[in-house]
Design a binder for these strands. Structure first.
Lengths: 345, 345
DNA sequence: CGAAAATATGTAAGCGCTTACATTTCTCTC
DNA sequence: GAGAGAAATGTAAGCGCTTACATATTTTCG
């Protein structure tokens, strides 16, 4: 047939070419490449030099078809522009590389519909396994993944109630700890700026964490002045302006993440409010931004890199062994910096 | 043979199953999926409903093998943790998605050896085309890519002297413009904190740009106090400390990127120097960090998102058409903010 | 109305690799 | 040094899809 070999496509050497050049069968060449130990040293040298001299490199499609795996792992994150995901994905990719796996990435822009589509795309593109953020998801998607036999690991969430393998931290408890610190120094009027909670279990858990802390101190959780807004500095600032315009503005504003907190901080300055003297602000994540602003942000440190690295290891193990690992819970830590202080009396 | 079908692997429906269910040939099913216009509406509906009811999804390896393309485009960037790359890659991925392509990413950690390895990996993983940063690279790599027939687009660089397709901006000229502004307000003692120039043509071009500006004003380009350091806030700070410890410290410090500049800014504050009264500092890139610090950084805005988006379009076009597009040069713009002022007299 | 042209569908040959199984070639051991 | 067992290599059957080409069906129009 030889279709399309006539045009620009270069005619690359195949396994058979290497086999011919080395005077062995294709099976031996394949073994040299995939399990060298099975092949005698002298044969192996002969084959490898044929590989080198022909400039051979295996055809991906053929290999994937025959071996029924691609050595590719997919990850879908809301957006790379959020430093927490960029950082984790970077570590994830590096670790994957150590295991000889390649990373296929897609982003959902925080939209469940786009995410569902991307999941299908990555599976169709041959991802051997998938990394997803948070448990919240249409059950049909999990059914689809199960049908295709694609292992999934959930990151950024730890919830032993969910049977699915996951790696993350307890958003709720971490936020409850931080909120408790805010209460401990004396704040009673608490505002909260959160990311949109719909379809985002992390955001919901953090809100629940603040309410837990309130409740534990015998305060009314429903008194929390909650403002939800999409992720951005500008939105954080706008939300802060709303909160501060209230008849009795909160003396402390707990933010669902550092980006919103930085926005809040900027707005506070713009409104002529001194942080933390007039109002305390806290973040969550501990990204670079948190240390660069003045005063530096009191926040919760999340081990994003560790999470990315560990996620890669778990996923590689899941692809290989097929066993579902138990949920992993990482520790978070409060970073006390300059934006939390006792309220003015 | 049926190997490995006995174990855990689910037995997924194939094209043939769909064909059987719909009462057509596999060719017709394939056409329904790839060029629906060729198939009669009634047949198509029948096939598509069979696809849906069986939960069929094409096998990636088989498709790649038969079609000789994967619909996957690879990108290798130094690191995702650098916001400029994260931002561009995000836009790149979104645009790729619109064209039905998938993104394979790898990172080089700024190491030419790792990059070379990653290039081979991505090609072996079936990338139809590659996005790389900067022209600087072993010629053997370009030869390899040419042999394999993998189109490459270079981003972050614009140099008409290079024959290769590229999209970027003129690092040298942009930096020269900024440096000229620094000179224009009266600075004569200029320090520069640059990223490591070796194997990084962007960094080299920016240094050259500063020297150009000096020369154009009749000053001695070799008088530039240049400090090279790896990319990080802490390194920027350390470099700033060195510069300020000089017998006659520079009155303006031009930084190769915003991250180094933010480090310099922090160190200035730590040293009790007021910016811009005691010393001016400039950045390059215009990332979020630049607007969050106080005073906000005077820097060069680089249209990272546009670059990412356009890169995706070019690459898709290269894979499809096979024609090498002419180098594209994007415009940069100086953002005057708070860190540049005339030197004290 | 019939032949030519256009359209729709079927047939089947690979794409390049992996791997189960068969065969050959060593390496021991007694 | 013969036979058993281990090790190395070869044989060949797919993996599931795309697409050139063949065939069947419909449309067009002189």
């Amino acid at each position: 047939m030889n279709r399309r070999l006539s045009d620009t496509a270069p005619n690359l050497p195949t396994l058979a070419d290497v086999a011919r050049a080395a005077g062995v069968s294709t099976a031996t060449v394949s073994r040299c490449l995939n399990s060298p130990a099975q092949v005698q040293t002298t044969t192996r040298d002969r084959v490898l030099s044929a590989v080198a001299s022909l400039g051979y490199s295996p055809n991906f499609g053929a290999r994937a078809l025959a071996a029924r795996r691609t050595g590719t792992i997919g990850a879908i994150i809301p957006t790379m522009e959020n430093a927490i995901f960029a950082r984790a994905i970077q570590a994830f990719q590096e670790e994957l590389h150590l295991s000889g796996q390649t990373l296929l990435v897609a982003s959902s822009s925080y939209s469940p519909e786009i995410e569902a589509e991307q999941i299908r795309t990555l599976v169709a593109r041959g991802a051997d396994a998938l990394l997803l953020i948070g448990h919240d998801r249409d059950p049909g998607i999990y059914a689809f993944l199960e049908q295709r036999g694609v292992p999934v690991l959930i990151a950024w969430a730890f919830d032993p109630a969910q049977a699915r393998p996951s790696i993350g931290f307890d958003n709720r408890r971490a936020m409850a700890c931080l909120a408790d610190e805010v209460l401990r120094v004396g704040h009673r009027d608490i505002g909260m700026i959160s990311a949109m909670a719909e379809g985002n279990d992390r955001a919901r858990d953090r809100i629940a964490g603040v309410r837990d802390a309130l409740r534990d101190r015998g305060l009314d959780p429903s008194a929390l002045r909650l403002h939800q807004t999409p992720y951005s500095i500008a939105n954080g600032a706008a939300a802060m302006a709303c909160l501060m315009a209230l008849p009795t503005p909160p003396t402390a504003v707990i933010c669902g993440n550092d980006v919103l907190a930085v926005g809040a901080l900027q707005m506070a300055r713009q409104l002529g409010l001194d942080v933390p003297r007039h109002v305390s602000i806290t973040g969550f994540d501990d990204i670079e931004l948190a240390t660069v602003v003045d005063p530096a942000l009191t926040t919760v440190h999340v081990p994003h890199r560790d999470m990315g690295r560990a996620a890669a290891q778990l996923l590689v193990q899941m692809v290989g062994g097929g066993v579902a690992p138990a949920p992993v819970c990482l520790e978070t830590e409060i970073c006390f910096r300059g934006t939390l202080a006792a309220p003015r009396t």
